[in-house]
Structures are given as structure tokens and as C-alpha cells.
Computed example of a mutant assay.
Amino acid sequence: MPSVPSATLRQQRLGAELRKLRERAGLTSTRAAALLGVPQARISNIEAGRYAVSADRVRTLARTYSCPDAAHVDALAGMTGARKRGWWEEYRDDLPSGLLDLAELEHHARAMRVAVTVHMPGLLQTPEHARATMREVVPPLRPYEIEHRVSYRVKRQVVLFEDRPTPYTAVVHEAALRMGFGGTEVARAQLRYLLEMSQEPTITVLVLPFGQTGFPAAGQPITYATGPVAQLDTVVLDTDHGCDFLDAEAQLQRYRSVLDRMESRALPRGQSRDLIHRIVKEL
């Protein structure tokens, strides 16, 4: 079983899900190892994502743990194998690992829902808008660091343009539409790009306008990535210290409810586009 030098978020998640199955079966790692005839350290390393694990091994573990959910087991088996180098790996020496994990998560997501208050959704940003926002980062980024991050952000958008694009729903607060990062020309181009992207059949842009009573989120950008089964969904919170990845059942339920409420209070697609058009004319 090959060692994994740097476990990705996906490998860590697979290990964590296998640990959950073992614990639900009421087995210690020592007992599980004895049933499988392997060293206890191997179970611990698999659950920590330190070793690649085969689909057959996952199915053997699931049978040992008496997991009755065939769809869940199939989804876990689909997460196996040694780490495949995605395009994001070329940035491993230049960007925080959390950003690489985000690109990997987006690559494998079956659908995405996002909500933003101040910034545009990352996958719907123009390079100029992204560059302008990154100039505001504290502590300041060096010019070459900004360009690395702009390049990375643009490449993440590939999931929206593939042969089978990922369905993407974005709730954008009116405040984000009026922030004006980069000046009038950059802001106008960003809004026009948002309108252009909103015409794609798999992309939905909804505006939460000023004057809407109530706001069910704390204000930080939220991404909800749908997995092959509900147990493998992931929430990403974009914070000042980096990305927080959440996958506990209670957390997933909470953010599904938050996004449901935000989408219900946002303007419909047509009215959202009309508001964006009006703001473009005001610039």
C-alpha cells in the first residue's frame, strides 16, 4: 500500500468517512485490524489519509463495518486510488494548501451553491476584478503572488465550461454589485461578465437586494459543494485566515437551510438580471 506524501482534502475525507463507518459499527481500530488481519497502524494510516487505498479495500472495510448503504460505499470506492495530479498541483509551491484543496473539491463536485456579500463569486470573477481585490489583502501580496492567485482563480472556472459543466447557483448581495473594486471600468466589465455568465443554462445568478428584511448568513462567502451522495457534501467558508472545510451532518444541514433561505429571499433570475443592468447603467 503506497504511502501518500501529502494527503489531499479528498483523501483525508475518505479516511474520515471510513473512520465514521468503523465507529458506527462499535469497533476500535485495534479490533478492526484484527478482523481484517492487518496491523493496527494500517487502519490508523488509512483513516488519516496517509496511505492510498484501493476500491476493493474500501468495500472490504465497509463489509467488515456492516455498512448497509450501497450508494455510500460506491461513492467512497470512487474516491480511492493514489493521488492524481490535477492542474492545481502546479501551484503547490506557490499557494496555501487550502486553495489547492478548494480547486480539488470544485473539480469533483456534482453541483455548487454559493453566497457572497461583498466580493463576486470566485468562479464568476474577471481577472481584473480578482487582481483588484487581491491588492487589498492584508498583509499585502507581492506582484508575482497576485499574478499566481489570479491565474489560479481563472483556471478554477474550467468546471463551468467542461463538456458536462457543474451546475452553479450564486446568491450575490447587492452590496457586492456596488463595491466598485478596481474603479469604474473594472467594475462595469465585471458586472457585464456576470450578466454574460448568468445566461449559461447551468449557471444561476440571484441578487439579494438592499431592503430585503432579514439576512440569514454571517457575511462570509459560503460554498456548498454537492458530493455523489449527501454524506459526502462539503461546506467551504472563506475566512481571513483561509478556507474552512466543514462536513459534519449538523453543519451541512445548517448551511443547506441558510442557502435555502437566502435563495428564497433573492430576486428571481430575470429580476436579478434587470437589477444588474440598472447598476451597470449607473456606473
Rank of each mutant, 00 (worst) to 15 (best):
V4E: 14
R10M: 03
L14M: 02
E17G: 03
L18T: 01
L21N: 00
L21P: 00
R24Q: 11
A25H: 00
G26L: 02
T28D: 07
L35H: 05
P39M: 05
Q40H: 06
Q40M: 03
A41G: 06
I43R: 04
S44T: 12
G49Y: 04
R50G: 00
A52R: 09
A52K: 05
R57W: 09
R57P: 00
L61F: 13
A62H: 07
S66Y: 06
A70F: 06
A71L: 08
H72K: 12
D74S: 08
A75V: 06
M79Y: 05
R83L: 09
R85D: 13
R85C: 03
G86H: 08
G86L: 07
W87I: 08
W88R: 10
E89R: 10
Y91V: 12
D93S: 14
L95Q: 08
G98Q: 08
L99A: 14
L100S: 13
A103D: 10
E106N: 15
E106F: 14
R113I: 04
V116T: 15
T117L: 15
M120W: 08
G122C: 05
G122N: 04
Q125P: 04
T126L: 06
A130Q: 08
A130M: 14
A130K: 09
A132E: 01
M134A: 05
E136S: 10
V137C: 03
L141P: 01
L141M: 04
R142L: 11
Y144A: 14
E145I: 00
E145P: 01
V150T: 01
R153G: 04
Q157N: 03
F161N: 11
F161V: 06
E162A: 14
D163E: 14
D163L: 05
P167M: 04
Y168W: 13
T169N: 07
T169L: 14
A176T: 11
G183D: 10
E185N: 12
A187K: 02
R188C: 08
R192Y: 04
Y193K: 11
L195P: 03
L195R: 12
E196Q: 15
E196I: 07
Q199F: 07
Q199V: 09
T204V: 13
V207A: 11
L208I: 01
L208C: 01
F210S: 05
F210A: 04
Q212Y: 07
F215H: 15
Q220R: 12
P221E: 02
T226H: 12
P228Q: 12
V229C: 02
A230C: 02
T239P: 02
H241C: 08
H241D: 14
L246N: 03
L246T: 03
D247V: 00
Q251K: 13
L252H: 04
Q253N: 13
Y255D: 07
R256W: 11
R256S: 15
S257G: 11
D260M: 03
R261N: 12
M262E: 05
R265M: 15
A266G: 08
A266W: 02
A266R: 03
R269Q: 11
R269W: 03
S272V: 04
L275R: 12
K281E: 15
L283S: 11
